[in-house]
Amino acid sequence: MTLKAADGQKILRENFAPWVLELGLVVEEVGDGSAVLRLPWSDRLAREGGGLSGQAMMAAADTAVVVAVAGARGGFVPMTTVQLSTSFQRPVVGRDVLVAVTIGKLGRTLAFADVTLTVDGDPAVVARASAVYAIMG
């Protein structure tokens, strides 16, 4: 089953904690092993100096991997983060962030993903992440 953006949005609504939902993430695309989510700019997510907090970007990346794995599996299954490593490359101020995930390997019990974060309308990378997820279902 191929998932659509609306399916990804439903996965968010039904499976994530309220504080994650408060990030306002929007699923823009779900593919077979990929996903793109939008993290809308919010002053509430800014740290001192006005830049988007790294914690918000990491949470968005972590969440986007779940949607991408669901896309690869044809639907949501229980899973949990085993590893998430993020490198921040430039600040984000006043702009939405696009979180693009590609699943590099999807096994029966583990998924490996690469995540690229950019600001909307600019291909310059603001952060990169790699993640490993344990698939429990």
Rank of each mutant, 00 (worst) to 15 (best):
L39C: 07
G94R: 13
V132K: 11
T109R: 15
E28A: 05
A134P: 10
D114E: 15
R90G: 07
V115D: 09
L84G: 00
A56V: 12
V119H: 09
L98Q: 08
A61M: 13
L12N: 00
A5S: 08
F16C: 02
L106N: 07
R128P: 10
A72N: 13
K4V: 00
L39D: 07
M58V: 05
A72K: 15
M58T: 10
M58F: 12
G71F: 03
L23Y: 02
A68S: 05
A59Q: 15
A46L: 05
L3V: 03
D32I: 05
L21E: 01
A64E: 07
L25V: 00
K10V: 00
V30D: 06
V119M: 09
R108M: 07
V20W: 01
F112V: 03
G107H: 14
A72P: 13
L110V: 06
L52G: 06
A46K: 13
P78S: 10
A17T: 09
L39R: 11
M79F: 10
V20G: 03
K105I: 00
A59G: 08
V67M: 03
D114G: 14
L37C: 06
V26P: 00
R90C: 04
E28S: 07
T81Q: 06
A70S: 12
A113W: 11
R73L: 15
W19C: 00
L12H: 02
G121W: 12
G8A: 00
R90W: 08
L84K: 07
A127G: 06
A17C: 07
A68V: 05
G71Q: 06
A129E: 13
A113F: 12
G94A: 04
W41M: 05
T116A: 12
N15A: 01
V82C: 01
A60I: 04
A70G: 01
V30I: 14
V99W: 08
L21T: 01
V67I: 12
W19K: 06
T80E: 09
G75M: 10
L117V: 08
F88A: 02
E14H: 02
Y133S: 02
G104E: 15
R47H: 11
V77G: 12
V92H: 11
F88S: 03
D120G: 03
G94K: 10
A131W: 13
L110I: 07
Q55T: 11
A59C: 09
A68D: 04
V65Y: 11
S87P: 09
D7Q: 02
R108F: 09
V65C: 11
A60S: 13
P40Y: 14
I11C: 01
A70Y: 04
F88P: 09
W41K: 09
G8S: 02
G31K: 13
D32C: 06
R47S: 04
G33W: 14
